[in-house]
Amino acid sequence: MRVLNLLPNGHVPYLEGDRIQRETFQQVKDREVDDTLIVVEFESTYTAGRRTKPEDICNTNLPVIEVDRGGSVTWHGPGQLVIYPIVRLKEPVDRIKYIRAVEAAVVEAIKETWQLPVEIVEGRAGVWLRHPDRKICAIGLKVAQNTTMHGLALNLYPDFQNAFTGIIPCGIDDAGVTSLQEEGIETTLEEAMYALVKKLETHLQPLLWETTKNNATTHPIGGEN
C-alpha cells in the first residue's frame, strides 16, 4: 500500500488537500496507482458533511466548506492528524465491513501505542473515551465506484480555545471532544502516523481488490505533492 505523506508540507490548505485526494481517487479507481493512504495536517478549517443540520453551526459567520463525506460539521487544523484511505474494495463491496475495519484500526493503534481505553459507541461514529463520553477521533467515509474517500481525524494536540468553536462537533450536543494531550499523552504527528498506518494496512488488506502495481509497501518517509 502506498503512503502519500504530506506532513513535510506543513499546514496544508484544505482545498489543496481535497484536490490531491480527488486526483488520487481517480488514479486508484482507474488502477493507475496502488491503494493509497494520504497523511496530512490541515490549516484551520471547518467542513460540513452530508448530515449537517443548520443548528449544528452556531456561529453562522464561520467559513464552512461543504464536503461529500458522511457525518456533520467538524474542524480540521494544526495538532490533528488526518488520514484518507483511498483504496479499491473487492466485490461485493461491503461498506459496513469497511467502516468497521477503519474503526478497528484506530482503536487498536490508540490502545497499543498509548494505552488509552478507547472504544466504539453504538450509534455514534468515531472513536471515543467514556464516562463522560468524549470523541478523540472523528471518522467520515465515502465509497463510490468501489473506491473509498475521506477518512479519519485523530486529535493529538489541537488548541481547543480555537478548534471546534462555533459548532456542535459532529452534530452531537451531549458529548465532548478530547485529544491525546488532554488525556495526558504527548506525542508527535510522525509517531501517530506510523501507528495508524500500520494498523490500517493490516485491517484493510483483506477487503482490497488485487494490488494494481506491485505488492510492496511504500513507507512514509518523505513528502509528495
Rank of each mutant, 00 (worst) to 15 (best):
F25T: 10
Q27A: 15
H203E: 06
R50E: 06
A192Q: 04
G71R: 12
G151N: 03
V102L: 02
G123Y: 08
T52Y: 00
R22C: 08
E103D: 06
G151K: 04
L180D: 07
L4R: 11
D56N: 15
T202W: 04
P63L: 03
R51P: 00
E32M: 13
D133N: 14
L200W: 04
R2N: 11
V127F: 08
Q80N: 05
Q27G: 09
R31T: 11
T202I: 09
N225S: 09
L6M: 13
V64A: 10
L116S: 07
R88E: 08
L204P: 03
G79T: 05
P206L: 05
P220Y: 03
W209P: 00
L189T: 01
G126Q: 10
F42W: 08
T202D: 04
P13N: 06
D174Q: 12
V93I: 02
K97M: 02
Q115A: 06
G222E: 07
G123D: 07
R19K: 14
F42N: 13
N61M: 14
E32G: 14
D68A: 13
A104E: 10
V33T: 15
K90S: 05
Q21S: 11
V3H: 04
Q21V: 08
R88I: 01
T60F: 07
P85W: 04
V197N: 02
L152W: 09
Q161C: 05
F160M: 15
L15P: 06
N162G: 07
N215I: 10
A195H: 01
E201K: 06
I83C: 02
R50K: 11
R19T: 13
Q26H: 13
E190N: 10
L180I: 09
L196C: 01
